[in-house]
Design a protein around this nucleic acid. Structure first.
Lengths: 240, 240
DNA sequence: AGCCTAACGGCACTCAGTGCCGTTAGCAAG
DNA sequence: CTTGCTAACGGCACTGAGTGCCGTTAGGCT
């Protein structure tokens, strides 16, 4: 029970779009505080609405469900990701582009660390919230998969749909892994560096698809250093 | 609206464990039929209980929530998967073992095709059921990740946790992709063959981790056929 | 046959989520 | 300043999911 977030009555705030955003944030903020203080189930929607100085009915005009309030900025992030895909360099490796895009999620979590930590504590404790978060991640993952599939198809990959789904899942998993470790340590170490390391593993695994199982011949002189031989053969095997 | 599944009153069925299983199945079956006939939201728990010849309160003694009834056999499958891991050959590639284990999900879906198709139609239509399914898949995925992490750690992989999470996500995604395509076609083609193809892609991407970036030397006579050279070098690069 | 455990049904309650409608703030035009 | 329109808001009432409680009784065990 921190400082009670009793907002001003704020009569008819949502008349203007800016006012609507403000009230949305106020509701989300009040909800997170109440959840952290009293627990999720023990907090009713009436409590949240009262803390934000609005009626219960108004809450449901801003959020479809009680648990949606914890993932308020989800839609904005998805929109940002799609913008990033639209503006992406078509020459870059698709998986790298997708990793960059999913990095936007990390940015938004890092931008409001206190909220992220409280939400993390809740999603670890309350099963229904954990499920909700998983569903949220799944939406990111679908956006990734859609972009990857388009790129793979345009590369003529016969298994574009499958490869896109698998790569998207891998990227999302790497992202979540980094995110959870980071939150578990209270947001100490540099999350972007950790993410880059994790994404490197994924990028290495999901390089551009081998067009078909052709036989590849690599020829080097015996004077070539051994590490060079290994590197080149490995590279060739990945990009025949 | 097929034949109305009005079960016998069945007084005190759950006295014996076998009876409990039977009633669980009866409730699940009645629920699926009603959902398919009248829609998910339009079907109340009272309807399901009445169709199975029990009281509403009894339904909630068999299932924690209304949507749980659609994924009734989930726990059994998880248990089967863990048995499979416990009995798995420790010498096999971990990802291959995990792919085999997740194949048990495909088996259970194929075993009761009619239910699977109805559930698929529902999860495609009702958002809350889609989320529930995603959460269910996440549980499989966690079991996979746990096994993979143990195997990777015992191989001395420093990034065991990350690699396990990513590989598990990839396997689950491949499994779901195959499963959805199969259900979309009404269960026509051979799902195990499709799954094997999809898993091959994942296995290739997530071979056992290189223990450390050591330099590896492969020596072969110039008489070795080229495809043999490529195969052996590739194998050595994956298992140094 | 009789006891005793627990499965069952029913009741009452909380709370999430929704439809409906009267009220009124806030904006625009005269 | 006044009038009128639009929509945000609150309140009310309702449905249905999920839960605690308890009386009843089926059915296994001795």
């Amino acid at each position: 029970m921190t400082d009670s977030p009793r907002r001003a009555p704020a009569t008819r705030v949502g008349a203007t779009p800016a006012g609507r955003r403000q009230l949305r944030r106020a509701l989300a903020s009040a909800a997170v505080d109440l959840f952290a203080a009293n627990g999720y189930e023990a907090t009713t929607v009436d409590d949240i609405a009262a803390a934000a100085g609005v009626g219960r009915r108004t809450f449901f005009r801003y959020f479809d469900a009680k648990d949606d309030v914890l993932f308020a900025n989800h839609d904005e992030i998805v929109a940002e990701m799609e913008d990033a895909f639209a503006a992406a360099d078509p020459a870059r490796d698709p998986v790298e582009v997708a990793c960059d895009a999913v990095g936007l999620v990390l940015d938004s979590y890092a931008a409001e660390l206190d909220v992220s930590l409280k939400r993390f504590a809740l999603t670890r404790t309350v099963p229904s919230l954990r499920d909700k978060e998983v569903a949220t991640v799944d939406r990111y993952q679908r956006v990734l998969a859609r972009y990857l599939q388009a790129r793979y198809e345009q590369q003529g990959d016969a298994a574009a749909s499958l490869r896109a789904a698998v790569a998207a899942a891998a990227i999302a998993a790497a992202n979540n892994h980094v995110l959870r470790r980071w939150l578990r340590t209270g947001g100490e170490d540099d999350i972007k560096v950790r993410a880059a390391e994790a994404f490197a593993l994924v990028v290495a695994a999901f390089r551009a698809p081998r067009a078909d199982p052709a036989t590849v011949v690599a020829v080097m002189t015996t004077a070539t250093p051994l590490h060079e031989v290994v590197a080149q053969v490995g590279e060739i095997l990945r990009h025949p």
